[in-house]
Design a protein around this nucleic acid. Sequence first.
DNA 1: GCGGACTGCTTACCT
DNA 2: ACAGGTAAGCAGTCCGCG
Length: 864
Amino acid sequence: MGELINWIQYTKEDKGYQRNTSQNEDYIKDKQTPSNKADKDGLLILISADYDPEEKKTFLKFYDIKKKNIAVLYDKLGHKPYAFSKENIEKLKNNEHILRISKRLVGLEEVVKHDPITDSDIHVTKIIVEDPLVIGGTAASLRNHIKLWEADIKYYANYLFDSNLNVGKHYLYTNGWVKEVEVEHEEPVRKYIKKYSSEPLLVEWIKLLSEEVPEYRMLAVDIEVYVPDQTRMPQPENPRDPIFVFSLRGTDGLKKVLIYNLREEKIDKEGINEFSIEEFKDERELISRAMEIMRKYPIIVTFNGDNFDMRYIRRRAEYINFRETVKDIRLGRNDARIDWGVHIDLYRFFKNVSIKNYAFSGKYDEITLNGIGKSLVSLEKIELDKSFDEMTLREICIYSFRDAEITFRLANFNNQLVMKLITIIGRIANMTLDDVCRLSVSNWIRNRMIDLHRKKNYIIPLQEEIKNKGGERHFEPVTKGKKYKGAIVVSPKSGVHFNVYVLDIASLYPSIMKEYNISYETVNCPHPECRGNLVKGTKTYICKKQKGIVSEFVGLIRDIRVNIFKKLAKDKSLSKDKREFFNVVQNTLKVFINAIYGVFGSEEFFLFYLPAAEAVTTLGRHAIEESISEAENLGLEVIYGDTDSFFIKDPRQEAIEALIKKVSKKLKLQLEIDKIYRYVVFSQRKKNYFGVLSDGTLDVKGLVGKKSSTPEYIKRVFYRILEELRHITTQEEFEKAKKKITNIIMEAEEKLRKRDVDIEDLALAVTLTKPLKSYTKTTPQHVKAARLIELSTGRKILPGSVIKYVKTVDQNGVKPMELIRNRKEIDANKYIELLWSTLTQIVDVLEIERVATAKSRRLDQYFL
DNA sequence: GCGGACTGCTTACCT
DNA sequence: ACAGGTAAGCAGTCCGCG
């Protein structure tokens, strides 16, 4: 391995490990405080772990804060892979499958575990083996032949849980061991640690989450492959085309393009000062040099490197008999990891819906380098109007470097916000950074739940065991195909309403899970004495004796967020940077809190239990119904409600305060004023309205004019109308605005009729959500358009791509944007209909009417 | 053979 | 591979109609 991994020799020599059966022995020998804060010698942060199949050991990857390198440490505890069986030892000893693997069997041990479902201690057999593959991963593995518990947890994850290690935590290295280290905290943090000193669990979390996240040394990498005829994309699994460009951009200021000059072209470097160019005469030299540079960086960042860049490098090197040079790139089925550090694939990270919607509040919608770059760091790809064949190598270098630059900026903007996020998620989930950036929120939560089970010595139940608890479904879901009934939506009172307060129940579902002790083991628990503790309107009962593991976890992280990190984020005695950091922490906690209910309500989730999920929504419906009726008792007028929030028209201040008190007392839930509208406009449709908030900002919900698929032209008319409405403060002003709005509509319609609109602005943009082949039941318009693109250009349209098409007068009725040649093809009437149907949603309520039919209409035939 | 009523599919949104 | 509820447009089907 590389020169940078200084400590590997300490550990690799240490082969004579002993078997250690005590599963809870600390890796950490003792606690230590660094004598001097400035001296960061040996101060490490755990960021990753993996299993070395040759050494048959787990190794840990630490980020060395001072050296800004990776330190690798191999296992010294003699930890071994294992799983549990409920058969007793004697019986197992003679089991044919155990006999079959006896050579790789380390031992069988009887251990006591707590079974959360029966709430009792049970004796199980721990099957300890030499190699994780004995447990799972091959056809012959034990878990495919005998019933095992905890047999589908990655071995290195197991290792972290059992060794009491936590990803993202600081450790101190001395004499071949790492020790847990007490890092210094700032005064406000210390204050909280003191305040909650009677709750050790809470203190642990405060400490863990407030530790500093280092500034990582990283390198962004992007490669280009030379494909002679542009018709095909380079395929890593068939790497017949040469890699000819590596663009590299590092946090230390490195800006380099390495190019294999396969055309023997004189590259014009004049005026390029953004980066330097290194030329190579041979592809192998290029790859060697690129790998040499890459190995100097502990963190490699790519955009889609798992399935393209890193994979192609490895496969191509193998293809040209150059495997040795790239053997420290390890390809998995769906990922590419690097032995010398951590490879972060930003494509995987940004694709994650929790990241997209919660961490970045949906600021980007297209998951491409261009789309995300544009939205988050205001840098776009260089547009290509010709193929590499037709470009000079100079042009290709500039093009390629831009990609590396965007990737670099995505990883580095806002003080490495993305890396902070990944690290904090790693801390909360106790998951390696490699896994955090590749896996979804359900895996993050699963990982932490497994850790919590281990720490409580709970055996993790099988999905079938949870299902076998039984318990019926009590309410038919409203939506066909759903598993259980969800939230309620109260029909809006249509019309214009001034001075409207929106109240919402603070984190409704998580609060319910916490307050009502909802967890897979506490809902329909085994204790006869809890059977009377029913969820209203159901036969579901909830445990009164034990605190549920899920409930406890939600409660804990919710408390930490609300009581500590939200406050730290606003603590003026802290520096701006610190406050921002704590704000990222509290937002990351929010991601978890928001996702927990959904994850536990998902059938695939390993702790899914339908009666528990149903109990949450049932209690949620009660909560909002009770809140609304309490509001009405206080003489408040409720004009709309959805799930956890309701709208009150022109309320008395005291009534609101009284309501908040009442709900807090009666339901143990916190009502909050979410927002106040100067006015809000409802049609009769649910989840569709707009309003102007007290600070004058426009708030549009659900209306067609807001949808990403609506043509730009119609959107613009829509927002122009709303802009007219935005300034209105009184009923009288409404009347005046109506005239203006009518004019806007008439003008827009006239332009459409004359087809006096840019074709691009008429495109509907609809996402293809699955492969073209799998639309068998119907052929939606965007599918028709996508097929036309494939037919005429030969380009393959993949799921996730946004299809832009226009409505035409030909027999298809649609045509992809890029194939339109003539304005005459456009079906103007369809667009006029579309315009009206979009605007109806705002205009209806304002009593602006559309009178004549499309054909006979003239401008003066509109009236108010 | 045609058109309206209806159902189902698909997407994008809200909480 | 986090949930359910709602709106809207369109595709496809059924049914009545001398």
